[in-house]
């Protein structure tokens, strides 16, 4: 009896792909959308637009000149170098950690998961200072390394280390939920059919997580190139030597070189936009293969 009525009422409705989830009037809906739109415009698009407007305020030739300036080139090179070391390092670490956490049971597993998240909850400035405490001349390892002529703080190795620290969770965080969801069934099947551990990883595990891995690498790279706070503490701000792009932007800004500052900043903005575009594409195309990405 009841089910019939429901069926009838459903049948009466015109076939529609979309139904409102709430009973708000279209006017309310429009107001809400407008608020969200205006807010995003003010908070996101306007400042981003201002960066490009300021960067091109002197025309193309000045824009390119600002990017070709030796200190700017050195900053870009350093930023690329740091990302080229930090991202692969975290790729290897992330895969290993996710593999261990998702496929094995061991004591202290939840502690490991918490530790991986630590860089998310620690302020980057503190991360930088912590590395100074370890590698500074009065630090734990600093004097010992100094005796061997190895410089970590205020040099490229220190910058690489803090970058690895702040970007550590990105890859692991993407992989863990997905790998846990997938379970160990396929790997067990492969092993029972005689595949070696390495082969299993290469032909079973890796294909299952490749898109999530790419997604994690993407976010990791964006943060590695854009990190300011932690790097600022440990860099020593030597022009042309230990300034990454974000630090170089600040220096130029403080020297009244606003156009040049924003020219370099626009490169970082382009990087951010590219990351965003790729991220959106991955989410749209491979959402099913990226359990970890669904929540983002």
């Amino acid at each position: 009896m009841r089910s019939e009525t429901i069926a009838a009422s459903v049948a009466e409705r015109p076939a529609k792909a979309w139904r409102p989830a709430t009973s708000e009037t279209p006017a309310t809906r429009r107001v809400l959308i407008a608020i969200a739109g205006i807010f995003l415009g003010l908070v996101l698009l306007l400042p981003l637009g201002a960066v490009f407007a300021q960067a091109f305020s002197g025309g193309w030739s000045l824009y390119l000149a600002a990017l070709a300036e030796p200190d700017a080139v050195a900053a870009m090179r350093l930023t690329l170098l740091v990302a080229a070391i930090a991202v692969p390092a975290n790729l290897v670490f992330g895969v290993a950690a996710a593999w261990a956490i998702a496929k094995f049971e061991f004591r202290g597993k939840s502690l490991l998961v918490t530790l991986i998240d630590l860089p998310f909850s620690v302020s980057p400035v503190i991360s930088g200072l912590a590395y100074i405490l370890v590698f500074g001349s009065h630090g734990l390892l600093g004097p010992w390394l100094d005796a061997y002529g190895i410089k970590v703080a205020f040099a490229v190795p220190g910058i690489v280390l803090v970058t690895i620290f702040v970007t550590l969770p990105f890859v692991a965080r993407e992989l863990i939920p997905l790998m846990e969801e997938q379970g160990a069934g396929e790997e067990e099947a492969a092993l029972s059919l005689g595949a070696s551990g390495w082969k299993t990883f290469l032909f079973v595990t890796l294909p299952n997580v490749k898109w999530a891995l790419l997604y994690g690498v993407l976010l990791c790279n964006a943060r590695a190139m854009g990190e300011f706070g932690a790097v600022s503490v440990i860099s020593g701000h030597i022009r042309g030597l230990t300034n990454t792009m974000p630090l170089h932007v600040e220096i130029l800004y403080n020297e009244y070189a606003f156009q040049a500052a924003f020219a370099v900043a626009s490169l970082l903005a382009i990087l951010a936009l590219l990351t965003l575009a790729l991220k959106t594409f991955l989410e749209w195309r491979f959402a099913g293969d990226m359990a970890g990405a669904r929540g983002h």
Binding site: S137, H138, G139, G142, D146, K151, A153, F154, H237, N254
Partner: peptide, 20 residues
């Protein structure tokens, strides 16, 4: 000659911490 600039007290601090 390479330069590093910042607040004077902060700069002294980094030299104490090992900036060469």
């Amino acid at each position: 000659v390479r330069m590093s600039h910042g607040g004077s007290g902060k700069q002294a601090r980094t030299v104490i911490d090992g900036l060469d």
